[in-house]
C-alpha cells in the first residue's frame, strides 16, 4: 500500500540545519498495523506527517497505492487525504467550538456526503465508540479518554484505508489508553491499515511490526506476529 524510498527531510533555520529524515525507506502492506518508535527528535512525527501528506519531503519517492504522490499539489493532497487517510493525535485536536457530533461529521462534509447519510454514519460510528450519549457535548465537557474516542471516531467515519496515529495514548491514563488501543486493533482487524507513532512499548505490542528510528534513520525492525 505504501512504499517510500530514500525519503529525506531537512529543517533549516537561520543558524542551524537539522536533518529530520535521512534516506528512510520502508514498505507498508494493506492491512498491516505498524508502530514507529524512537527517542524524541528522531524524526518519527515528521515521517508520519509526510506519510499523511501534511508536510513536504525534500527528496525521495512516496508511492501510495502505486501512485507517486511526492509531487502532488495542495489540492490533490487534500483530495487524497480526505478520501483515504484518518488522523489521531496525542492532543486530540478536536475543534472546541463544535459539538461531538459536529466534530465527527466534519470529514464527511469535506468529502461531500449528503446530510442524511452523514447523520447515519456519524451515529453509527459514535455508537461503535460508545459515546453516543455525549453527541451534543463540547470537547471541553469530556474526559481525556472520551475526547480521544471522539478523535478516533472522526478518523474512521470516512472509512479510510489508512489511519495515522501520533502517540494516541500520550495524554491518557492506562485504562483509557488500553481502550483506545483496543479500538485501533478492532479497526485493523476489520481491514484498516494503521501506522502509529508511540513511546510506549506496551502500546507497540498491539502492532504487527515495530520500526525503530534514531537520528532520522530506521535502525531496526521487530516483527511481532
Amino acid at each position: 500500500m505504501i512504499k517510500i524510498t530514500d525519503l529525506e527531510k531537512t529543517y533549516r533555520t537561520e543558524e542551524v540545519e537539522t536533518i529530520a529524515l535521512n534516506k528512510v525507506s520502508f514498505d507498508v502492506k494493506t492491512g498491516e498495523f505498524i508502530a514507529i518508535m524512537g527517542p524524541s527528535g528522531c524524526g518519527k512525527s515528521t515521517l508520519l506527517n509526510i506519510l499523511g501528506l501534511l508536510d513536504d519531503m525534500d527528496s525521495g519517492s512516496y508511492l501510495f497505492d502505486g501512485i507517486e504522490v511526492a509531487k502532488f499539489n495542495e489540492r490533490k493532497r487534500a483530495d487524497l487525504r480526505k478520501h483515504n487517510i484518518g488522523f489521531v493525535f496525542q492532543s486530540f485536536n478536536l475543534i472546541d467550538e463544535l459539538s461531538v457530533f459536529e466534530n465527527v461529521e466534519l470529514p464527511l462534509i469535506y468529502t461531500g456526503v449528503k446530510s442524511d447519510e452523514r447523520k447515519r454514519r456519524v451515529e453509527e460510528v459514535l455508537d461503535k465508540m460508545q459515546i453516543m450519549h455525549r453527541r451534543n457535548h463540547f470537547p471541553q465537557q469530556l474526559s481525556g479518554g472520551q475526547q480521544q474516542r471522539v478523535a478516533v471516531a472522526r478518523a474512521v467515519v470516512n472509512k479510510p484505508k489508512l489511519i495515522l496515529a501520533d502517540e494516541p495514548t500520550g495524554n491518557l491514563d492506562s485504562s483509557n489508553g488500553n481502550e483506545v488501543m483496543q479500538l485501533l486493533t478492532d479497526l485493523n482487524e476489520q481491514g484498516t491499515t494503521i501506522i502509529m507513532v508511540t513511546h510506549s512499548e506496551h502500546d507497540a505490542r498491539y502492532s504487527h511490526r515495530i520500526v525503530r528510528m534514531l537520528d532520522g534513520r530506521t535502525v531496526m525492525e521487530n516483527i511481532l506476529v
Partner: peptide, 12 residues
C-alpha cells in the same frame, strides 16, 4: 482549528 480542518480534508 484551521490545521485540524486541513488535515480532515478542507481545501484552501
Amino acid at each position: 482549528e484551521i490545521g485540524v480542518r486541513k488535515v480532515l480534508g478542507a481545501s484552501v
